[in-house]
């Protein structure tokens, strides 16, 4: 079980590195699917099967498909990849990467500070999650419903291509 965790975390980190360094958006999306699958495997090895299933269904199945639809609609081609290549010079990425690396080292040092303790992996079943979700977190579930509804309405409103419809009296003046 722990070997599974180590292998899948290495796969997740490598796939994520590939995501942020690709030039073609579609290649980055495919590597992101690999990364999500690996993270879902990590969830499974941590004893969270419900979250693992949701990770595959919602992230790799719905969000990535949305991204792929948008990339297809925008018709990003070779030109975009060349432009990305031009933007991704070492002098652009080396500064932020070093700063982020320093932050990462600080975080790892902080995490390693207290004495190490092993955690006992026991499976938290979907039944327990559902009882907690619809018991003590019911208000948050309703707020999540509001959030999704607002997201749908906002996306439908923003994504609409507005055609200029003038009144027939005003059309003559233009």
């Amino acid at each position: 079980m722990s070997l599974l965790f180590y292998i899948s975390s290495i796969v997740a980190i490598l796939a994520t590195i590939m995501v942020i360094t690709r030039h073609q958006p579609i290649h980055a999306l495919l590597y992101l699917v690999v990364s999500f699958m690996a993270i879902s495997m990590i969830f499974l090895s941590l004893g969270a099967p419900f979250s693992a299933v949701l990770e595959v269904i919602v992230y790799a199945g719905a969000i990535i498909v949305l991204f792929i639809f948008v990339v297809m609609m925008l018709n990003l081609d070779k030109e975009t990849a060349l432009q990305e290549k031009k933007w991704l010079q070492p002098k652009v990425w080396i500064g932020p990467s070093i700063l982020a690396l320093v932050l990462l080292i600080e975080m790892i040092l902080l995490l390693l500070e207290p004495p190490s303790e092993k955690m006992l992996v026991t499976v938290v079943t979907p039944r327990q999650v559902a009882l907690s979700l619809y018991g003590e977190y019911i208000i948050a579930v309703e707020l999540g419903g509001f959030l999704l509804m607002t997201g749908i309405v906002g996306a439908a409103h923003i994504g609409k291509h507005t055609k200029r419809n003038l009144h027939r009296f005003l059309q003559n003046n233009h």
Binding site: M1, S2, F5, S45, L111, L112, E117, K118, M119, L120
Partner: peptide
């Protein structure tokens, strides 16, 4: 069941 360090995750 095997065990994983919480730090590692």
């Amino acid at each position: 069941m095997s065990s994983i360090h919480a730090h590692t995750v």
